[in-house]
Write a protein that binds this DNA or RNA. Structure first.
Length: 442
DNA sequence: CCCCAACGAGTGTTATAAAC
DNA sequence: GTTTATAACACTCGTTGGGG
């Protein structure tokens, strides 16, 4: 068929529209199937480069920021009976990030930062806030965000194209591990303030994977996404082991020892944590292994106190994410897939599927290329109209049946049917189809 | 331990063809 | 004119697993 008309709602306001709207309604029918190419049309840079036949200039995003929170937990309620559960309340203790600045070759430079509750106690704290033009009651998370916006600007400058005409979004990705579940909640209250504003979370309610924060002055955007969605469900430890460098490892930290009463005292101590401190109720009351503790004692010798170790631990958690992400970006780059443009490995796979039809030769590296379809050529005419296609005709029978069913559906759903289209509207719709046809055929 | 998003089985809705 | 069958989704809700 030439095209199938779709009347989305049975509560059509056809007669209503005719009376007051200046807009002339029409039905659009296509006699050539519309191509589906989301991998191109959803990526402005790729769309531009492809339209001008410049795909050889394409480069994927290699600059990004990783971040992580550490918290202190207050036990609000203890185990009183076997029916009563322990509830703990988590507060922000520190936030760390690793900024990745890409070079023109495949190398990159890292800048690591860590802000903690201790910063808010320091004498120069108000001065620091003023440097970023933050209001006096801002938290250390605001301070981190302000600095991150400045860093993002530099990362953007490292990544954008030399040719200013090539569109490139002023947006830098900020990745956390399983952040869509937990870290975002801690970040939430800092995402909207005088200096920047939070956008609507992307997707529907059961698909909130990304939040964009825009700086009001510089219009720089930070897009917070969850790195776990790019690797599939696994622990950070497993991800680093499978995708990263063998030499990197996740360290240990006694979360449950620190609470809002004792943090200042406990973290200022200069001796290492005791073995018993690592016992965790969450992990079934078990502590870390003896080997892990020995490794911790060796690591600790490099630090003057426990706070310094906390900063190191927090930063390390973000730094170990960089290598796996780089490896993933490299893997997809050979197929022209820009991993950081997407928010999940599923959407990368979807884009890969479409690219494999545009550029089959890229996906059959080891095979005899001649036996495959040719790559997409922007100058070729791919339209393929079918002269034998049967045109759609709006018959009285078809229209009657449709009206009847709309009524049935509304009745079953307990809806009002007064404004529904009726059999009497046949002539109007018949006319609408005729005029629409003429427009298309010219 | 609790929280929350993803997942997946089950169920509901809509459009249409064809039989009655 | 009415009923039945079917495909393609959309929605619901309990389970699962990682976060601290």
């Amino acid at each position: 068929p030439i095209g199938t008309p779709i009347v989305q709602s049975s509560q059509s306001n056809a007669s209503h529209n005719r009376a007051i709207s200046n807009h002339e309604p029409s039905i659009r029918l296509h006699d050539v199937p519309m191509p589906i190419c989301p991998a191109i049309l959803n990526h402005p840079t790729v769309e531009y480069l492809m339209a001008y036949d410049l795909m050889d200039q394409f480069k994927v995003q290699r600059g990004f920021i990783t971040y992580d929170f550490e918290t202190l937990s207050d036990q609000v309620m203890k185990n009183i009976t076997d029916q009563t559960t322990v509830l703990s309340q988590l507060h922000k203790l520190s936030i760390a990030s690793t900024e990745v600045y890409p070079n023109n070759n495949k190398s990159y430079e890292l800048v690591k930062r860590c802000y903690t509750l201790f910063d808010e106690l320091s004498d120069s704290y108000q001065e620091q806030l003023e440097n970023y033009q933050l209001p006096p009651n801002s938290s250390f998370v605001h301070l981190w965000l302000a600095q991150t916006f400045e860093s993002a600007e530099e990362i953007y400058q490292c990544m954008k194209y030399y040719d200013e005409n090539i569109p490139f979004d002023r947006c830098v990705k900020v990745l956390g591990w399983n952040s869509s579940r937990f870290d975002i909640a801690l970040l939430w209250d800092a995402l909207d303030c005088e200096l920047w504003t939070m956008g609507v979370p992307i997707g529907s309610l059961n698909n909130t994977k990304s939040i964009t924060v825009t700086h009001k002055k510089s219009h720089m955007k930070l897009q917070f996404i969850d790195a776990e969605n790019l690797f599939g469900p696994m622990t950070l430890k497993a991800c680093v082991k499978d995708y990263g460098d063998k030499t990197e490892h996740k360290d240990v930290f006694p979360y449950e020892l620190i609470n809002s009463k004792n943090w200042n005292e406990v973290l200022m101590k200069t001796e290492p944590f005791e073995y018993e401190d690592f016992k965790s109720q969450l992990k079934g009351g078990y502590s870390i292994t003896k080997d892990e503790y020995d490794q911790y004692l060796i690591d600790f010798k490099r630090f003057t106190n426990r706070l310094d170790y906390l900063k190191y631990y927090n930063i390390n958690d973000t730094e170990i994410m960089v290598k796996p992400l780089m490896n993933l970006i490299d893997t997809f780059e050979q197929f022209n897939i820009d991993v950081l443009h997407y928010i999940s490995i599923a959407s990368c796979a979807y884009a890969t599927k479409h690219y494999s039809t545009y550029y089959p030769s890229k996906f059959n590296l080891e095979s005899d290329e001649q036996s495959y379809y040719e790559d997409f050529d922007i100058n070729t005419d791919y339209s393929n109209p079918n002269p034998n296609a049967k045109p759609f005709e709006l018959t009285v029978r078809y229209w009657k049946s449709k009206c009847y069913h709309y009524k049935q559906q509304d009745y079953n759903a307990g809806r009002e049917t007064e404004k529904n289209v009726t059999t009497d509207d046949y002539d109007y719709y018949k006319q609408l189809f005729e005029t629409s046809f003429r427009q298309i055929r010219q």
